[in-house]
Design a protein around this nucleic acid. Structure first.
Lengths: 112, 112
DNA sequence: CAGCATCCGGAGCGATACTG
DNA sequence: CAGTATCGCTCCGGATGCTG
């Protein structure tokens, strides 16, 4: 996103937010991010088990998009059987406060 | 969500998060919430203009769902021509820290 | 102005089978 | 284990027109 020296207006701000939301958008992305929240590396099959409702196809698709968008990194261990782990990038880790805030909000549902 | 005295386990936590994310899920919901972020009341046509890419149908649908889920409140002014305003509920306002955190994150994209 | 009803094309997604 | 490929259907969501 080349904003080189352009003035910061509510319009550009809105466009940025919109672009950013596109990254988070997707039926499973936030859920996936919550499982990587603690900074740990998780295997593909781990995530599959952690989110039973997601299909293999969707899981890999959403992971790929998150990877392309620079939120998630993919660590391939060249061995048999194959082992691939997923974790947050530095920028992805910067999302933690936001995820945490959502967590706090979720907790307020029952508590009132 | 009836969690009356049930033990708080990672599983129930995950379920809660999942349920909460369902509320935020939807192509336009977060965007709508950002426009109500400052606590102001916005008319239907205001939101339409603020989010040009959303169709009338989608806008009303997402607003209804947010209303049903208790995040947004609908204020009807009985007059002609009709006037309906939308704003955050108390619980919706509790989302602000999370929205703010996302805003901060979005700002980090260009800054590096 | 605010919102509902209807039509309809295409994206999204699950299920299944197959590969390295 | 970690994917890819293909099929088939659901339903999302845009366009249009109508109502109070």
């Amino acid at each position: 996103m080349d904003r080189s020296g352009a003035p910061y207006t509510p319009q550009t701000a809105a466009a940025d937010v919109e672009a950013t939301l596109l990254i988070l958008e997707g039926r499973w992305k936030l859920l996936i991010l919550f499982h990587l929240f603690d900074g740990s590396l998780r295997r593909f099959s781990d995530l599959e088990r952690a989110i039973p409702a997601v299909s293999q196809k969707m899981l890999i698709q959403q992971l790929r998009q998150l990877e392309t968008d620079g939120v998630v990194r993919r660590v391939v261990h060249h061995q048999v059987p194959p082992k691939v782990e997923y974790g947050l990038t530095d920028w992805g880790r910067a999302l933690c406060p936001a995820l945490d805030a959502i967590l706090v909000w979720a907790a307020k549902r029952e508590g009132g």
